[in-house]
Design a protein around this nucleic acid. Structure first.
Lengths: 169, 169
DNA sequence: CCTTGACCCTGTAGTTACTACAGGCCTTAG
DNA sequence: CTAAGGCCTGTAGTAACTACAGGGTCAAGG
């Protein structure tokens, strides 16, 4: 049951439907080189087969694991070149895992700061909102709560600091 | 020590330096309405004072907590309109907190799937890479591992599913 | 035969939150 | 007087899509 229903000559809509991928995204992935350009009919219609479907599913799964398109490209290259890709794949995934863990840490610091601030608001009947005050304070802002303990709050360079942004999505 | 060094008539570079904000970002925040347009000199140069600095710091702290610019705008409106903002601020923060927690959950599922896959690679000397195989499998892809247990993997609509994307940054 | 609707094609513009120029004016120190 | 540094504007670039507009193609029904 490798290919439970091997299909030749699908159109884009069917490929999208079968994979759950957005229709436009299929074309986008072709444009940016993640999907090979499929053959065309005489009138220029794309014709996909199950090879394309497999490729697209690979890309989608890697995306679901949070790999960037550049990282997915690197993984696909490993798939295609296929000489002992395991060490390199493991390295790429480990790098990515480190980024995922860093983001989790950042978000957990945000979570702690937010839930503390919300707790201080209580039932919301305060005349002066502690949440807004926390954001307004001059001396010790939210950054004291959420910046990683070993990272200096401000290196003075002004531009280009916060290489790892704390604000996601 | 509210305003440890109240300053009038700074230029953009000084405001940026004092707050750690990127120079261009200051102008950007003005353009999108997060900072009020400051008065100008005869030659059109912006002149900021400590009120602008306070405002900018507020925005920066809210961003560090992961609030979107729209959310920051809503918080600023509460600051400005100031009639019992506590309940509303608390509501906004709670909504945001829920999003943060959802992202943490997503990232933790990614983390689990990634570390499991990496572990299966071992020392990377496998001839067939389990990581790449996991991404290539037809039947049970990574989505089985990382999609929330109560969320259907594919609702069949094709477009517009995965309202909450699993891939961040 | 014609029409209707569902596809298909291309290219472009929108999204978020910035960041980085290019091209030109202004100010100040040497 | 000139060179270096500020400032101004507007635009274009980033990631990863998403959504049109404007037009062509194709199969089925009347």
């Amino acid at each position: 049951m490798r290919d439970q229903n091997p299909v030749k000559d699908m159109q884009r809509a069917e490929l999208a439907r079968r994979t759950g991928c957005n229709l436009e995204t299929v074309r986008y992935y072709e444009k940016v080189g993640l999907l090979p350009a499929p053959p065309r009919t005489a009138k220029g219609y794309r014709r996909y087969d199950s090879g394309h479907e497999r490729r697209l599913r690979f890309v989608m799964r890697a995306r679901e694991l949070g790999f960037s398109l550049d990282e997915v490209r690197a993984l696909l290259k490993l798939v295609d070149e296929r000489d002992q890709p395991c060490a390199e794949a493991s390295r790429l995934a480990s790098l990515h895992l480190a980024q995922v863990r860093a983001k989790i840490g950042d978000l957990q610091r945000m979570e702690a700061a937010l839930s503390e601030a919300i707790a201080r608001c209580g039932d919301g009947a305060r005349p002066v909102c502690p949440l807004i005050e926390a954001l307004s304070r001059e001396e010790h802002g939210a950054e004291q709560l959420i910046v990683a303990p070993d990272a200096p709050a401000n290196d003075g360079s002004g531009a280009g600091n916060k290489a790892r942004r704390l604000a996601y999505g």
